[in-house]
Design a binder for these strands. Sequence first.
DNA 1: ATGGCTTCATAGTGAAGA
Length: 267
Amino acid sequence: MRIATWNVNSLKVRLPHVLDWLAANQPDALCLQETKQEDSQFPLAELQQAGYQSVFSGQKTYNGVAIISKTSPDDVTVGMPNFPDEQKRVISATLDGVRVVCVYVPNGQSVDSDKYQYKLSWLAALREWLKGELLRYPKLVLLGDYNIAPEDRDVHDPKAWVGNILVSEPERAAFRALEQLGLHDSFRLFEQPEKSFSWWDYRMMGFRRNHGLRIDHILLSEMLLPNCTACTIDRVPRKLERPSDHAPVMAEIALDQPAPLLSNPSS
DNA sequence: ATGGCTTCATAGTGAAGA
């Protein structure tokens, strides 16, 4: 199973990029964030034409998440039951026996903002909810735009970002709290290039100078961990005309193979 | 330089993103 996440920053604007990327990469599933469109506007037919089914939860202007997949999505749920929210940030579905949880974590705006408190409350609720979900669905993937750079090596200039959202200690603690549930950052299971990022500022030639952050992540439950064979960031779509500011991240999970007895994907 | 781009909702600019 090839499963990917991509914050597209408006699906209306980015649909051509998404269709091209699906054709080129043929993932089994792609999770989208910041679709920024109401459900009635979702490009269901275009994606169907490309061979993909879709489930989505959107709203005008902000937020919006979707899971598009080659196989039929089962047991689709929207949001978190323990955190009623107008903002459309969570959608989940089961694909080929794997529970897929697609999240668009709040940005937080600044550490002294109400939105930052909302972000931390949201992350606490996510952790509480996932505790139960992991018991129900031992094969679980949590992926999306986390709006957290977990470590300094995920930041192009850690000194410049001190005290900022996305890197603050409470946010990083919330990320580690997810890991403590037995969720593992698939990207770090493998050797990766130095200064690997998934987002670059549109301004000041952020991409060309590789002034970026790694804030989009694919976390895998213990049961899926031994079967993960790769996780990569695809910078290609970021080079196109009118790109999203995020790049897609994709993991490969060998579902048809039994887990090896001695499993250590990083060796 | 508290901006720089980009999108959306607007029909001027302003909010928000990260």
